[in-house]
């Protein structure tokens, strides 16, 4: 079952089952938690890439391994319909996500590809890590540019 299909099916189910609960939808908190986990690991390598802390191959590799795995967390129950920024408070997920699920899934796939490359390069020295880190940052940005609302 495709990413998009899964999201669509579960979105419909959630919308029917919990129309009034959208505001406190646990899916929103969980997906925000997942992004915190992304950043928790991404940030270690970012700090090294920017020279805020010294490069440490082992620490970078651990962070990259984590990021590889957390970006593979199944997304199917995290994006129910009606949890966009126009429908509820407390999210920056634009409605455009649900209008363009194929593209959204493709961009998430690009992030997964980038974190795989980062996992392969993180322990190979600062420069190798920086290049792969930059590609990962680009994958984050590609989605944020289109699908994330300004902070409130």
């Amino acid at each position: 079952m495709s990413f998009k299909h899964l999201i669509g099916t579960l979105a419909l189910g959630a919308a029917i089952a919990f129309p009034a609960m959208a505001e406190n939808d646990p899916a929103v908190e969980t997906r925000q938690g997942q992004f915190k986990l992304f950043i928790h690991n991404f940030g270690v390598m970012g700090a090294m890439a920017q020279g805020r802390i010294d490069y440490d191959a082992e620490m970078a590799q651990t962070a990259a391994d984590n990021l590889f795995h957390v970006t593979r967390h199944d997304q199917s129950r995290l994006w129910p319909e009606g949890t966009d920024s126009m429908s509820i408070d407390g999210t920056r997920a634009r409605p455009a996500i649900w209008d363009n699920l194929d593209d959204f899934a493709a961009k998430f796939g690009a992030l997964q590809d980038a974190t795989e490359a980062l996992q392969g390069a993180a322990g190979d020295g600062l420069e190798a890590m920086q290049a792969a880190f930059g590609r990962t940052a680009g994958a984050c940005q590609a989605c944020h540019e289109v699908y994330r609302e300004e902070a409130s």
Partner: peptide, 24 residues
């Protein structure tokens, strides 16, 4: 100052959030 300069060159906030929206 380091944070601002790094953000303008990388799009990364001091918390390593990645720039989006019009600021991108």
């Amino acid at each position: 100052e380091f944070d601002v300069s790094a953000y303008l060159s990388s799009g990364l906030t001091p918390e390593f959030d990645v720039v989006g929206g019009t600021m991108a």
